Computed example of a mutant assay.
Amino acid sequence: MILVLNSGSSSVKFRVVDLADPGAGERGLIERIGEPGGVPDHAAALGQVLDGLGDAAIEAVGHRIVHGGSRFNAPAVVDDDVLEVLHALVPLAPLHNPGGITGIEAAREKLPAVAHVAVFDTAFHATIPPAASTYAIDRDLAQRYDIRRFGFHGTSCGYVAGRAAALLQRPLEDLNLIVLHLGNGASATAVRGGRSVDTSMGLTPLEGLVMGTRSGDLDPAVPAYLNRVAGMDFAAVDDTLQRHAGLLGLAGVNDMRTILERREAGDSAAALAFDVYCHRIRKYVGAFHAVLGRLDAIVFTAGVGEHAPAVRAAALSGLDSWGIAVDESRNAASERIISPDGSRVAVCVVPTDEEHAIAEQTAALVL
Rank of each mutant, 00 (worst) to 15 (best):
A230H: 14
L167Y: 09
K283H: 14
R144N: 13
A269Q: 15
V229A: 08
I281A: 00
L209C: 00
V276A: 11
D140I: 13
L167R: 14
L206V: 07
R257T: 10
L226I: 08
H279N: 13
Y225P: 00
R195Q: 15
G216W: 03
L241G: 00
G216S: 02
G193F: 05
A224C: 12
T189A: 14
R195K: 14
A245W: 00
A235R: 10
Q143K: 12
L177D: 04
A271V: 07
L218V: 14
P223W: 02
A166W: 08
N176P: 03
Y277C: 00
D198I: 01
P223M: 05
R228I: 07
Q143P: 04
G162T: 01
L175C: 06
V285P: 10
R257C: 08
D219Y: 02
D239L: 04
Y277I: 00
A221V: 12
A235Q: 03
L182A: 04
Y284F: 14
G151R: 09
R144Y: 11
Q242N: 15
S187T: 06
V253D: 15
M256D: 11
A230E: 15
R163N: 10
T199K: 02
V253T: 15
G216K: 08
R282C: 09
A271Q: 14
L226M: 15
D219H: 05
D275Q: 10
I259P: 08
A224L: 15
I178S: 06
L247F: 01
A270H: 03
G246A: 02
A224K: 12
I259S: 08
A188W: 12
R148N: 04
L168V: 03
P205E: 02
T199G: 09
R257P: 13
R139W: 13
L177V: 01
S196T: 03
L175Y: 12
M201L: 06
R195T: 11
F152E: 02
D146T: 10
L250V: 08
I147W: 09
R280V: 03
I259Q: 08
A165C: 11
S196V: 02
L248Y: 13
T240R: 14
S200N: 03
S196P: 00
M256A: 05
F234S: 12
V222P: 02
G231D: 11
V237S: 04
V179M: 12
Y225Q: 07
N184T: 10
N176F: 08
G249K: 04
D146G: 12
N176I: 00
